[in-house]
């Protein structure tokens, strides 16, 4: 049985397809480190004062935010975190609904199962048991896959540095948390729009706030489940899609989205050698059989040919002999006839 080229390609594609639907993690489910911290961002309370930006820059030794907080024209354009500013507040207009504008703070969401951690090929990111996702610049190669993949556009890169460029982002003030303090933004927010605490408790608090004022909140805690859940939870009265967040995304974490395919890799590595060696063996066997058949046909043809030649030769030899005998007989007859003629003439004299 030989596999045609077409059949091989189809079979391989089908196999990959089938295997790709299997998850790598099996049936187990990890809820995340218990007691880890999170932050609740209540968009109804945010007034866009940007004190969080000021505090964040101070704590991280970045220059003060540009433009200064008193300049409200900063909100005319949407901003994103940069290598010198790990968090920004944006204004989202709400004129269509006839409501006042809404402000939201944007920064690294410190996901439960971070996309950045799973795509880093030197394992430079770690999800700590306390909640924050940390970055280790001592191993980073600078491939920027994490910057490219983050669905919240939270990571920035130091393109201006030739020898020590780092990936930079909000760190949830991990050193401060370890000391028992709150992250700088939560400390600085005058409205208490950022509340720091244990994630499980914050979710309960968020639900309580929603229950108390159903007219002011959408009944959804954003970040509870999106892409596996994040440490930053957002609640508010405006639809999250209008606030620049992706709504309706899967609850599967991003690592889970890719793990199905990656689980096929060892399968390919273990199956291919045998499969391909087998194909090679089959094709070699086909060649060998073809060669043997060809040789057999040739020798048969040769032996058939030599038989025919022999027969032709003996027939020719017989014919030659016959011709010779005829010629001899003819010559004898002729000689006898002449001899008779000669003897006849002598008698008559």
């Amino acid at each position: 049985m030989s596999v045609s080229r077409r059949g091989f390609l189809q079979g391989m594609a089908a196999g990959t397809l089938a295997a790709g639907t299997a998850g790598a993690a099996g049936f187990k489910h990890f809820e995340g480190y218990p007691g880890r911290y999170g932050l609740l961002h209540d968009v109804n309370l945010c007034v866009g004062c940007r004190s969080c930006e000021v505090a964040c820059n101070q704590v991280n030794d970045n220059p003060p935010p540009e433009p200064p907080t008193a300049d409200k024209s900063v909100f005319t354009k949407m901003r994103r975190p940069t290598s010198k500013q790990y968090t920004v507040v944006n204004r989202y207009l709400n004129e269509a609904d006839g409501k006042p504008p809404v402000y939201r703070k944007q920064q690294c969401m410190h996901c439960n199962e971070p996309c950045c951690a799973s795509v880093c090929f030197v394992h430079a990111f770690t999800k700590t048991p306390e909640g924050p996702v940390l970055y280790d610049p001592s191993v980073c190669v600078g491939c920027r896959y994490c910057v490219n993949a983050c669905p919240y556009y939270a990571l920035s890169y130091e393109y201006e540095k030739p020898f020590e460029p780092r990936v930079v982002r909000c760190t949830m003030c991990y050193p401060r948390i370890k000391k028992g303090l709150k992250p700088a933004c939560a400390e600085a927010c005058p409205m208490g729009a950022i509340k720091f605490g244990r994630r499980e408790e914050l979710i309960k608090l968020a639900r309580e706030r929603i229950r108390k004022r159903p007219a002011d909140y959408i009944d959804h805690v954003y970040g509870e489940h999106e892409f596996g859940g994040t440490s930053w939870l957002v609640i508010g009265g405006t639809s999250f899609a209008k606030l620049g967040l992706f709504e309706g995304v899967t609850h599967e974490s991003i690592p889970e989205l890719g793990s199905g395919f990656l689980s096929v890799v060892p399968l390919i590595v273990s199956v291919y050698p045998g499969l391909l060696a087998g194909i090679y063996a089959f094709s070699k066997r086909k060649e060998r059989l073809a060669r043997e058949e060809r040789e057999a046909a040739v020798s048969e043809a040769v032996s058939k040919a030599s038989e025919e030649t022999k027969q032709k030769l003996s027939a020719a030899a017989d014919k030659a002999k016959k011709d010779k005998d005829n010629a001899v007989a003819q010559a004898v007859k002729k000689a006898l006839a002449e001899a008779e003629k000669a003897s006849g003439k002598e008698v008559s004299k």
Binding site: F121, V122, V139, V141, G142, P165, L262
Partner: peptide, 23 residues
Amino acid sequence: LGRPWRLPYPFIVKAGPTSALFE
């Protein structure tokens, strides 16, 4: 790459095998 001299790191310093890029 930002730090190309570190290209061998995934294999000799710290591997991140969850990443497609590692493979």
